[in-house]
Design a protein around this nucleic acid. Structure first.
Lengths: 147, 147
DNA sequence: CCAAAAAACTTGACTCGTTCAAGAAAAGGG
DNA sequence: CCCTTTTCTTGAACGAGTCAAGTTTTTTGG
C-alpha cells in the first residue's frame, strides 16, 4: 500500500533543503507507521531503530519537518501534539472525546469547504481546519472504561 | 449591548445546579469582558475584583462552567485554553498564526456546515469545530514585529 | 435563625510536554 | 579531505495544568 523507501524520504528532505540524517529518516518511518502519533510515541518508535536519538532531536526533527511541510502537526484541544504524513490533501479529523483516538476524514464537501468565512474581521485566512468531536466505536461499545 | 447583571448570572448558575459564589460571578464577568481570554488573564481580571481568589479556584470554576455548558473552552494548536461566553450558536474562530489573536466568525454556511463527515470510521460525531488560520490585520500591516 | 451536609475554595506541592542553551558530532560543498 | 553549517546530545529549566489535604462557604432542613 505505502511502500515508500528511504530513498523517497531522501528526495523529500533534499527537496526541502534539509540534510538527510538517520534521525530524520527514522522519524519519517515512525510517523508513516503510526499516523497521529504524539511526540513520545515517535520517540519510542525511533529508538527501536536508532537507540541513541535524543528526545530533543525528535522535537527538532518534527519541528523542521512541519516547517518544511513534510509532516502535518495537529493538536486537538486537551491533547498533546500529534503528527501525520498525509499533507496537502485538505483532510480533517474525528477525535474521540473519551479516549482521544484520532481518525482521518476526507472533507465532506470535497474541496475547501467552509473555507470562505463570512466575515473574517480583517484576517487574511489561508486554511480552514475542521475537527469533528464524538465517540469512537470502542468507547461507544464499552462506555466509561479507560484504556 | 451586553448588560447582563449578576442576577442573570445567578439564574444561569442555579439553572445548572451550581452554587452561586463570588469567584464564579467574578469569572463570568471577566469572561464577558474579555472574550477568548486565557486562564491567566481571567485570573488577573478576577483578582482585580476579588483579590483573594486562588488560581486553583479559577481552574475549578472554568472547568465547572465548561462542563455545565455556560462557557465554551477553545484551544487552538499552540495556544493555552481560552474561554468565551458565546455558547450554543455554532460559531467558529479565526486565529492569527503570528500573534495568536482570536476573533469570532459566524458559520459561513449558516447551520452545522461540514457537520456530516463523509466517513466517520464508526465515530458518533456530535460537533464540528472549524478553525480558520491566517494573519490578523495588525500582523499584516506590521510584519514580523512581536507585540 | 441555626446546624449539619455538601460543595467550593485555599494552599502548596508536583507532573509532564515542551523549550532553552552550550557544546559535540555529522552532513555536504568546494 | 577539510571547512562551514546544520544537526544532535546533554542537561537544566519553564509553565500550564493537576493532585491532595484541609478549611471555608453555600445551601437545605429543622
Amino acid at each position: 500500500m505505502d511502500d515508500t523507501t528511504d530513498a523517497d524520504y531522501e528526495h523529500l528532505l533534499r527537496g526541502a533543503d534539509l540534510r538527510v540524517t538517520r534521525p530524520r529518516l527514522a522519524v519519517l518511518r515512525a510517523v508513516r507507521r503510526q499516523p497521529h502519533a504524539d511526540t513520545g510515541s515517535v520517540l519510542t518508535a525511533v529508538r527501536a531503530e536508532e537507540p541513541t536519538v535524543s528526545h530533543q532531536a525528535v522535537y527538532d526533527v518534527l519541528g523542521a519537518l512541519t516547517d518544511a511541510g513534510l509532516v502535518r502537526r495537529i493538536q486537538p484541544a486537551g491533547s498533546v501534539a500529534r503528527y501525520e504524513l498525509r499533507v496537502g490533501d485538505n483532510h480533517h479529523h474525528v477525535v474521540c472525546r473519551s479516549c482521544g483516538a484520532v481518525a482521518d476524514v476526507d472533507c465532506a464537501v470535497g474541496h475547501t469547504p467552509c473555507l470562505t468565512a463570512s466575515d473574517s474581521h480583517g484576517f487574511v485566512v489561508d486554511e480552514a481546519e475542521v475537527t469533528y468531536w464524538g465517540t469512537c466505536s470502542d468507547c461507544t461499545t464499552r462506555p466509561s472504561s479507560p484504556s
